[in-house]
Amino acid sequence: MRVVNALAVPLLLVGVWWLVSGGSFYLPSPGRVAAAFAETWFSERVLTDVLPSLARLAAGYTLAGVIGVGLGVAIGLSSGLRAAAEPVLEFFRAVPPPVLVPLIMLFAGIDNAMKVAVIVSGCVWPILLNTVEGVRAIDEVLADTCKLYGVRLRHLVLRSASPQIMAGLRQALSIGIILMVISEMFASSSGLGFTIVLFQRGFQIAEMWSGIVLLGLIGWGLSLVFRMVEKRVLAWYHRA
C-alpha cells in the first residue's frame, strides 16, 4: 500500500507529461529526455562538469560551516559583541546572495576560487546567525554547572546550539546549490550550470531538460543525505 501511495502520483504525472508532450518543441517526451539523460550524463561529463561543480559546493559549504560556527560561537558568547554585530549581520543576511557574484568576480576572477568564495559568502550568514541564536539560548543553570566542572565548549556550547546550527546548515545547503549553479551560469567554461545554459543556447531541448532533471536529482539527493546526518547528530534532541 505504501509503495502504491508513493508511486501512483509520480507515475500519473509522467503519464500526463507523456500525453502533453506529443510534438511539442519545448517539452520533449519523457522517453527522449531519459535517452538524452543517459547519453549526456553517463559520459566523461561526469568528470569534467558534474564532479567539479559538486567539489566546489562541498569546499564552499564546508568552509562556510567552519567560519559560521566558529564566528557564531565567539559572537554568541559575548553579549557586547553580539549587540554590536547583530545589525551588521542582519544586513548581510538580507543581501540576496546572487548579487555577490559580480562583486566577487572583481576580486577573484572567474576561476575555482571565485566560485568557492561565492558559495562561502552566501552560505555563511544563515549558519552564523543561527549559531549565535543557539549559543545565546544555552540554559544558564547548565552553563554554571558546566563551568564548575570545567567542561565547556564542545560538550556544552556546541551541543546545546546544535539544533539551531543544523537549521542554519539546512538553509545554507539550498543557498549553496543555488550559488553553485549561478556562479557557473554567470562566467565559466565548465560545470553543471554552464553546460545547461550551453544546451539551452544551442536549442538542445532534450539535453537541457536532462540537465534540469539532474539538478533536481542532486538537490533531492543532497537534502536526503542532510536529513540522514541531521537525524544522527540530533538523535539525542529528538529523543528527549
Binding site: L13, V197, G211, G216, G219
Partner: peptide
C-alpha cells in the same frame, strides 16, 4: 499520503535549475 513522495521530490529541486527553461 498519496502526494507525499511527489512533494518531497519536487520541493528540494533548486529553482535556478529552471533558468534555462524560463529563458526559452
Amino acid at each position: 499520503a498519496a502526494t507525499n513522495s511527489t512533494v518531497e521530490f519536487l520541493r528540494p529541486i533548486p529553482s535556478v535549475a529552471l533558468i534555462p527553461l524560463a529563458t526559452l
